[in-house]
């Protein structure tokens, strides 16, 4: 027998496999490295510019005529100016209140509804579940929603930023799927021991679902924090504006921030002020982001598969 010379296909077969896939060629690796570096830079650089400008000394900002990438020294006067009272401080307070109250309300109402829908004892369980599911497919539309909010007397109140969006049918369905997957033996045992439904929910279901509730809560919180249009639609009174609307007025629409709007005596350069407002509105998201990121893959998947 003559020796078998390996064909190119055979040689390729012998290379180490990564998860069954062939490792990328050097050229592909270089291309990917470039693509990902550029993509990440496009996300990170704007924030560096914004953060730097908000902390750069006024002379440097006015010399640059706008954003600077490297502050020559650190100057926090812009933050002092916006956080020492006045419209930005108030808006920040309102956004915090709306986000905290809204998230608590949303979580409570959603888990109560989701839990009840998993209980076999609930009358019309199927019908009620369909009611939740169907609402996912039909959005009632902007004008009828506005008229409904108006007829409930919610216009021009902080409640209008919370109540109309307090219940997300999608989150209810995700939670229901999660609660439904808990081992029913434990719940049955508690029931036999005479625990009320509320007791079962608070002492068993909630502690077992901490991670899921945290993810859903964070999604609600991000939604409340970022909401801008409901404030534009429902509020006439600018003293109730949340941070996003202030951001729109002074940064997107570029209206000048005057001493009238702030409590500070000295008004720093406009770009610094604008960027400081931007930073203040981004920071809470950045703070919860690592946590959010750890869990959302799971959350998004549950929704995608079971929703």
């Amino acid at each position: 027998m003559s020796t078998i010379t390996p064909t190119p296909a055979r040689r390729r077969r012998r290379r180490p496999l990564v998860g069954g896939q062939l490792p990328p060629s050097p050229a592909a690796t270089v291309v990917k490295a470039i693509v990902f570096s550029v993509a990440c830079a496009l996300v990170v650089l704007p924030f560096v510019g914004i953060l730097s400008t908000s902390m750069a000394p006024p002379e440097q900002v006015s010399r640059a005529g706008g954003l600077v990438l490297f502050p020559e020294s650190l100057d926090f006067s812009a933050y002092q100016a916006i956080l020492s009272g006045g419209i930005v401080t108030r808006a920040l307070g309102i956004s915090v209140i709306v986000t905290v109250c809204g998230t608590l309300l949303s979580l409570t109402v959603s888990s109560l509804l989701a839990y009840t829908l998993t209980r076999p004892a609930l009358p019309f369980r199927r019908g009620l579940t369909m009611l939740v599911v169907i609402s996912l497919f039909f959005s009632p539309g902007l004008l009828p929603t506005y008229l409904a909010v108006q007829s409930y007397g919610l216009l021009n109140s902080l409640a209008s930023l919370i109540v109309p969006t307090a219940l997300s049918a999608f989150n209810v369905i995700v939670l229901r799927a999660f609660f439904g997957s808990l081992p029913s033996d434990i719940l049955d045992a508690a029931e036999i021991d005479g625990a009320s439904e509320i007791r079962i929910l608070t002492s068993i279901v909630v502690p077992l679902s901490k991670a899921a509730l945290a993810v859903i809560g964070l999604f609600y919180a991000v939604g409340y924090w970022n909401a801008f249009f409901s404030a534009l639609l429902y509020l006439n009174d600018s003293t109730m504006w949340p941070l996003q609307l202030v951001l729109r007025t002074y940064v997107v629409d570029d209206n000048a921030i005057t001493g009238y709007d702030l409590a500070a005596e000295a008004i720093p350069a406009q770009p610094s002020l604008q960027m400081a407002i931007l930073v203040v509105s981004v920071v809470p998201i950045l703070l919860v982001y690592p946590w959010l990121q750890k869990h959302f893959a799971k959350g998004a998947l549950t929704g995608a598969i079971k929703g």
Binding site: T116, F138, P140, P144, L167
Partner: peptide
């Protein structure tokens, strides 16, 4: 227990839907 959620669902989904 499901009541608050169902009220919100009716008030801000189904009532506006009828408002069309």
């Amino acid at each position: 227990m499901a009541l608050p959620g169902l009220v919100l669902l009716l008030a801000f989904q189904y009532v506006p839907l009828a408002g069309n």
